[in-house]
């Protein structure tokens, strides 16, 4: 790292050094200084909407949002003080009055943050009459849990550049909706679910999810729907997929997924899945059998062909979607166990 490009400043009485252009929030995170935020997502432009990350800056007339303030040489910044705590608690209280608990499909960042600050539930009932016709099966919206931080709208504009969501109205009349109040299926929405992934409160959540996130177990794996190799988390409960998500900062995808990666998992539990080996019977129909019989049929079949025509009359074909280990084993089966180099896949790119 070129030290000319670094700036040093004072954070809570200690000198810290960050790269030029980095925000105070980034500096706080690097130094493990806890500053709450709700409207910030590293993948989006700095916004400064929720005011939870206010810090004191010497010489500034009032606290500044850490997420939107670039670190500069010689700054003196205070991230923790009784005054800041009061301000953060007030901000949390204000948000909590307009917030009802979601259904738990997502983590509720506001409630977690409020709990930290000792703020309990205090909703004032707001009528939120605005709903829209919605036939899509992936994206669900709970307006009560929404805190109007616009992360979903900004994600859709900045990252996806789809402009399928909008923030309409002002003050207590404000709300989020699919553009022009249409169904998601009738907008430019590509059903990527990125809005869900960035929503801090769980106001946007997976319609398909069958259990609260807290009750699931996450397994980190890799998507199979193209060659990008998005890292994802498969959330399961009782042997079933509940939902699929991806964590910001993980993998080549930095937490982004597309509609297939996030939502196309019903096939895993589909009734058409094969659950028993099948062999073709004398009538020419496939019928269920045991693994022993299936294996012996394979051995008989391959051996007979090998004996009659030689090993090179047998071909092996693997999908480019299998794992490296599976495919390694298949080519070894062909080369070592059967004795032919006839192994290939539909690898065309």
């Amino acid at each position: 790292m070129n030290s000319d490009l670094n700036v040093s400043f004072e954070l809570d009485g200690k000198t810290v050094e960050v790269q030029a252009g980095e925000t105070l929030l980034a500096a706080c995170r690097k130094t493990c200084t806890e500053v709450p935020t709700l409207c910030h997502d590293d993948r989006l432009d700095p916004y400064g909407g929720c005011r939870m990350c206010l810090v004191e800056l010497e010489g500034a007339p009032r606290p500044v949002p850490a997420c939107k303030t670039t670190a500069a040489k010689g700054m003196k910044v205070t991230s923790q003080s009784p005054m800041l705590e009061r301000v953060r608690r007030t901000m949390a209280e204000m948000l909590m009055t307009e917030h009802t608990s979601g259904n738990g499909v997502q983590v509720d960042g506001l409630e977690e943050c409020a709990k930290e600050l000792g703020v309990g539930a205090m909703p004032i009932k707001f009528e939120n009459p605005r709903t829209w016709e919605d036939r899509n099966r992936f994206l669900a919206f709970d307006p009560g849990a929404c805190i109007l931080c616009d992360r979903c709208v900004r994600y859709c504009d900045e990252v996806m550049q789809c402009t399928a969501l909008e923030h309409v109205g002002q003050g207590s009349e404000a709300f989020i909706q699919p553009t022009d109040g249409a169904s998601f299926l009738d907008t430019s929405c590509e059903l990527c679910g990125g809005c869900i992934s960035t929503c801090p409160t769980g106001a946007l959540y997976e319609k398909q999810a069958t259990a609260p996130i807290a009750e699931t177990e996450a397994t980190r794996s890799v998507c199979t729907f193209c060659g990008v190799g998005c890292v994802l988390d498969i959330h399961t409960k009782d042997g079933k997929v509940v939902k699929i998500s991806s964590e910001e900062g993980s993998g080549p995808n930095d937490g982004h997924l597309c509609n297939k990666g996030r939502f196309a998992w019903q096939f895993i539990h589909h009734k058409d899945r094969l659950t028993h080996p099948l062999v073709r019977n004398a009538q020419g129909e496939l019928e269920e059998t045991t693994w022993e019989i299936a294996y012996s049929r394979v051995v008989e079949g391959l051996s007979a062909v090998k004996k009659k025509y030689g090993a090179d009359s047998i071909g092996f074909l693997a999908s480019s979607r299998c794992t490296n280990e599976d495919v390694y084993a298949l080519q070894k089966l062909a080369r070592s166990a059967v004795g032919t180099n006839n192994v290939h896949s539909c690898a065309a790119t």
């Binding site: 190799g229 890292v231 895993i268 899945r273 073709r280």
Partner: peptide, 26 residues
């Protein structure tokens, strides 16, 4: 097919994939 062997999808096994940028991932 003379024999059909029921196997697993990606969520049901351990292993690695190698992506477009030659990155081997678990």
């Amino acid at each position: 097919a003379d024999v059909v062997l029921p196997s697993t999808c990606f969520a049901e096994k351990d292993g690695t994939f190698t992506n477009s940028e030659r990155r081997v991932q678990r």
